[in-house]
Simulated scan of single mutants.
Amino acid sequence: MPDDTRDERRSLIAPELPREGWSAAPLTEAARIPDFGRDLPATIDWCVRTGAGAPPLGGGRTGEVWDLLAATALQDVAAARMLEPHLDALGILRQADARVGAGDGPVGVSDIGADASSSWGVFAAEGAGMRLDAAETASGWTLTGTKPWCSLAAELSHALVTAFVGEERRLFAVALRTPEVRPHDGPWVARGLPGIVSAPVDFDGARAVPVGPAGWYLTRPGFAWGGMSVAACWWGAAVGLVAGLRAAAASERADQVALVHLGRADAVLWAARATLREAADLIDTRPGGDSRLLAERVRAAVATAAAVVLAEADTALGPGPLVTDDAHARRAADLHLYLRQHHGLRDAARLGRLRLEGERG
């Protein structure tokens, strides 16, 4: 990583992190992994080790978790894209009292071979023409059908997957490395996050374990928290683009316009950072509250900030770093695709609806 990027991490993120303990040690380890974020097996193994001691969201250390996600995205966006769903899955399992390896849930995810070494994804998207159904048989639950947008399904050992029981969605844990589970290898022509293949997966009577009752996944207290964890990754990825803006503004050839670009980026990132900080405090002080409105506000604020930074970097720096600087070009492309998890006007409309519902309530 270039020196200026390391400086950016120290000035904006590292002072907020403990000098020792869970949230600092993983970054030190990550720096020692060659091709961190691009070496998928090594990075996934790092995610598993990192998750082993992860504190739960809503447990008083939410800001610490988001600091690590942001710092990971600053180091490599793809690595954060791997870590976030793994931590989300562990949090969901914890909430469902189906702790990995303990077998103390209603059935126990150890029944599908999951243990502390498992790597997890969360596959909850739906797509036109695709449907995954769950059926209870004499020997347990099975999944049949196709699930879209399953990130890294060919690389992970397990996943939490939503499936239909009749017309109601329910969450299930499933092992991915079985003959009954067949991940597609595409289509995936993405220029951003090229290694994070998010393609359909076919299930043919795959054994599954229910995680929580029907409808629980969407109504559980922490459902909205995962969306804000993604926003923390967006923020860290956007911070990584500031190094180029700062270098341009500090150049002997710089004019006031270069300072404008840097100032605009700094302002929106600072506001987004404050938003994440307040949200973390609210989650920790009111973990049982309805966080849907909070999550929509946080995601909108951070997505807007990240988009502004992308635009400022493109305008200020021109095509040069996009065609000659591998780290910058990769970061910009990765962030651009990652931000598509925010659905623009549709998410803004949902925010507006939640605001009105809150006022009426």
Rank of each mutant, 00 (worst) to 15 (best):
P2W: 04
T5E: 12
T5H: 07
S11W: 00
E16C: 09
E20K: 10
S23P: 06
P26V: 05
P26A: 05
T28F: 03
A31S: 14
R32K: 12
I33Y: 01
D35V: 00
F36S: 05
D45K: 09
W46G: 06
V48S: 01
V48I: 14
T50N: 00
A52G: 13
T62I: 00
G63N: 07
L68G: 05
A73T: 05
L74R: 00
E84F: 01
P85K: 09
A89W: 07
L90D: 02
R94K: 13
R94I: 06
V100S: 11
V100Y: 08
G101Y: 13
A102M: 15
G105E: 10
V107Q: 13
S110T: 13
S110A: 15
G113S: 12
S118T: 11
S118E: 08
S119P: 11
W120G: 08
G127C: 06
G129D: 12
R131G: 03
L132R: 10
D133R: 15
A135C: 08
S139V: 11
W141R: 14
L143R: 04
T146V: 15
W149R: 13
S151I: 06
S151D: 10
E155N: 14
L156V: 03
F164A: 12
V165M: 09
E168C: 04
L171A: 02
A173R: 05
A175L: 04
P179D: 12
P183N: 08
H184K: 01
P187W: 01
A190L: 00
G192C: 07
L193N: 10
L193A: 09
P200Q: 04
V201K: 01
D202F: 05
F203V: 13
R207S: 06
V209T: 11
P210R: 02
P210F: 05
V211Q: 02
P213Q: 13
P213R: 11
T219D: 13
G222T: 13
G222L: 07
G222C: 04
F223R: 14
G226F: 13
V230P: 03
C233Q: 09
V239W: 03
G240M: 04
G244N: 02
A247Q: 15
A248L: 09
A250Y: 06
A250L: 12
R253D: 15
V257Y: 08
A267S: 15
L269Y: 05
A271K: 11
D281T: 14
L282E: 11
L282R: 15
I283G: 00
G288W: 10
G288E: 12
G289P: 03
D290R: 11
S291T: 07
S291P: 01
L293E: 11
A295S: 15
R297K: 10
V302A: 03
A303H: 09
A306Q: 10
E312G: 00
A316G: 02
A316M: 05
L317S: 09
P319W: 03
Q341H: 11
H342C: 01
H342E: 12
H343G: 07
D347P: 09
A348M: 06
A348L: 13
L354V: 04
